[in-house]
Write a protein that binds this DNA or RNA. Sequence first.
DNA 1: TATTGTTATACTCTATAACTATA
DNA 2: TATAGTTATAGAGTATAACAATA
Lengths: 157, 157
Amino acid sequence: MGEKVLEQQQLEQDAAEIEALNMRLSWVSRRRMQIDLDAYGLTLPQYMAMRCMQENEQGCSMSDLAEASHQVSATMTGIIDRLADRGLVARNPDPRDRRALRVVLTPAGHELLQQVAATKRELTLKILSELSGEERRAMIDSTRRYLEVMEHTVRSA
Amino acid sequence: MGEKVLEQQQLEQDAAEIEALNMRLSWVSRRRMQIDLDAYGLTLPQYMAMRCMQENEQGCSMSDLAEASHQVSATMTGIIDRLADRGLVARNPDPRDRRALRVVLTPAGHELLQQVAATKRELTLKILSELSGEERRAMIDSTRRYLEVMEHTVRSA
DNA sequence: TATTGTTATACTCTATAACTATA
DNA sequence: TATAGTTATAGAGTATAACAATA
């Protein structure tokens, strides 16, 4: 009975720990984002859609938006309806394809996203101020590494 | 112009990086949990409620369950209704207080949770097998540290 | 024929307000 | 009077299936 058995035990123990931490992290980070967005009357799917438009100056098709948030396009219709009702986004025709749309942020939409960003930045800086520079780097590196493997398994699922 | 300015720039840059990573992590870990649960026809709120009962042998009151998932009790009624319809949980009377309930897992509920745990464990081990023991420890430590500060800011929000 | 997007429908989660039964 | 839980109601997100317009 050797190192291999001990190694396996350690692996199982780490797995249990990772699972517990991940469940809490999943909850708390979702909760944290929702708190940030509540103040602006935005839901998470709405924010995700707006961020997608922010990164594409020429706008996004409904299919683009659906794919970016891993949803079917029928779901996206309702989300964009509600954002459009509030004047945060607009459905423009696609000059290249008369079936498609170019959904874009309105000036009000851009303005709102900037306010959200400022709020989030303030809270992030508050968190980070409790950590040393080294701790921050360690956190960033291991989070990135963790994401890599996580995203790999989600994609292949 | 000295170290302080450079430090501040580094802090801002780290903040931007943390925010981007956190958003992806929030999404991917939620997605990952949902994939695991889909196979068993469970939603995330249902699973959270069942886990709460699993950790309390004598059962949970509706208020306990609501508080644990940060929801109002009226929301919990619907979630427990659906679990009870499937025979996974049961509403028992509380002998101490005739207003209250002791919601418990049925044998079928326990059985299902064990199947879910096995599935999750298998995937977790697959992820961890791609990392060295040192990498795993680093990940666990920094995730725990990250959670600490995150949970602190969520609680105080 | 295939694709883009919407409509119709149904289910789950979420919250608020009104209510019943008990403490 | 206060608390535990449900019901009624409304709105948001999610998916599937059927559909219109266009490619």
